[in-house]
Design a protein around this nucleic acid. Sequence first.
DNA 1: CTGAAAGCGCTTACAG
DNA 2: CTGAAAGCGCTTACAG
Lengths: 341, 341
Amino acid sequence: MVTIGDVAKAAGVSRSTASYALTGKRSISTPVRQRVLAAVEELGYTPNAGARALATSETKVLGLLSRFLDDEFAPAMLQYVLGVTNEARALGYDTLLVSEEDGVHALQRLSSSRMVDGFVLLNVAEHDDRLPILSAAPQPGAMVGLPADTSGFDVFDLDFVASGRLMVDSLVDLGHREMVLVSQPEDVVVRGGAYVWRLANAARARAEERGVVLHHYFGASSQPQIGTDLHGYLDAHPTATGLLLNNEGAAAALPSVLSARGLHAPHDISVIGRYSTDFARTFSLPFTAIDSAADELGRRAVRQLVARIEGGATTALPHVLELIPPAIDDRGSTAPPRKAL
Amino acid sequence: MVTIGDVAKAAGVSRSTASYALTGKRSISTPVRQRVLAAVEELGYTPNAGARALATSETKVLGLLSRFLDDEFAPAMLQYVLGVTNEARALGYDTLLVSEEDGVHALQRLSSSRMVDGFVLLNVAEHDDRLPILSAAPQPGAMVGLPADTSGFDVFDLDFVASGRLMVDSLVDLGHREMVLVSQPEDVVVRGGAYVWRLANAARARAEERGVVLHHYFGASSQPQIGTDLHGYLDAHPTATGLLLNNEGAAAALPSVLSARGLHAPHDISVIGRYSTDFARTFSLPFTAIDSAADELGRRAVRQLVARIEGGATTALPHVLELIPPAIDDRGSTAPPRKAL
DNA sequence: CTGAAAGCGCTTACAG
DNA sequence: CTGAAAGCGCTTACAG
């Protein structure tokens, strides 16, 4: 293995000079720097990451704590992961991906062994058991998902309250008077997926304000159950003219369900979903939807995290809570209700 | 930060004794070990990963080089990734996920900086530009995907040749005489995705042997194009009674296409796909399919890689080439042809 | 502008 | 069975 000592020898300088020439942390005369860089090139030198981490206490690695739960749509998580890894790389960091169920333990392990400079937590629950650990950890952490208590954290999420209102308003403005909202399974809520009721409560409140009927259900998250569920909702509410989906699995299953019933959106029913643009493209979902902004949320979390890491304790960056306002990707699945009276 | 020196002091022993008590690399009297372990517990000591890596030249981290290409079905890749990370963790390793497009550069960076003990390469192409780098690297690597030259590597893949034969045989045995095979897009092949033609060529050869007609197409990988493509194939071959899919995007799009045409599998047409069991569950795909064994392939690659890492240069483990025989998940989408003459 | 030296926190031959 | 010391490959005050 070629070390900085080899480089120094080849360039005819001391190890410290070689190091400074590479880090740029003090000025080095041009000819000397040239010689060092030439030696690096010739010998193919790359600093040893472990040695550098030991000396600087910086690993240039971020820990990404993700959860791939059966009852949330695993592939939708991929968009967040890619947003995080790509932004991290752009900022000079590598990403350690942790998918183990025991996030608490993983967090403790990576933190106390100083393997990473900071953490990104995905899928944060309302009372997330990882948060106390993160608070006590020497490394900062940013999260995607809104916990009950955000103090001391950098938090990024879609504004699900505004999203619920927007879904309802969009259809009511078009003339719809009765609609069905399909949320994620109830155990997602029980586990602390607060975004489910944030959207649902906001939608219900807005429906009431506007004097329209909103039927709310917790659907299954995967087939065949969600298909059966959707048929059931449509059977139960034959006069409903709008369908709101806060459930990726339901969105993926809906085209088959509509086909089976001989229905077309928006001719027979208007549909608004909530999922990422990439997800829609990948799964061919033809429905107008609120973009869940997965990639963007992952990237923002990383940017803030890196700013905090590199700012050091001195700058004392204030903690942020960013709720991204919902944006609608119009795919033409909404229209005035045909069966409207 | 609590170091092994603190532990040693608290336990009243030397640092080396504390270290040995923890690693178990030489025998330590029970009372001394007890004291050391108690001190570790009390102080909450965890070894510093960078320092350990520097001293031992082992990082206990694997590098996972994945590619998320637009024209291959990104969510299908997730299954491989999870197989890798979960198996790695079970064997005591963390996983550095690299998704950057420039895999060659990433490999070089992680290898020369000694950030990882070994590599898992996903989505390996026939003439993969990462392989020369891997050959020259000091760390071993295992791969999922079959390159043209496997010498010096541990290679794992689905047996796509047997898969192509199995698809054809399954339908021919049921009485089908004309079918359509939809492969991944042609640019996947151009880029070196040899599995596409491995399956297609085997299927064509077997069809010829058995005296049946097989129409072969390279379909798009995502909507709306693949939907249009599928309609086109079905229009072009109205007498075909079987559909073989080596294209996840096509499988995801097929339910809508069949619905739109008023067709049902297997009543009107028999369908066999090729994708992972998890993928089928997540996307509600109702088709009989050859399991792509994504999770299993990822796990096998990791097991072999770790065995090679831990075996050291001494044991000189022979390199393996494992092609997993195809297994069919029967979801009831095949039957004797109704329109058979 | 440059060098010699100390130190980061471990592990592991070398002695006893 | 245990300890003192060297060394892994960097960075960075301390001197000049």
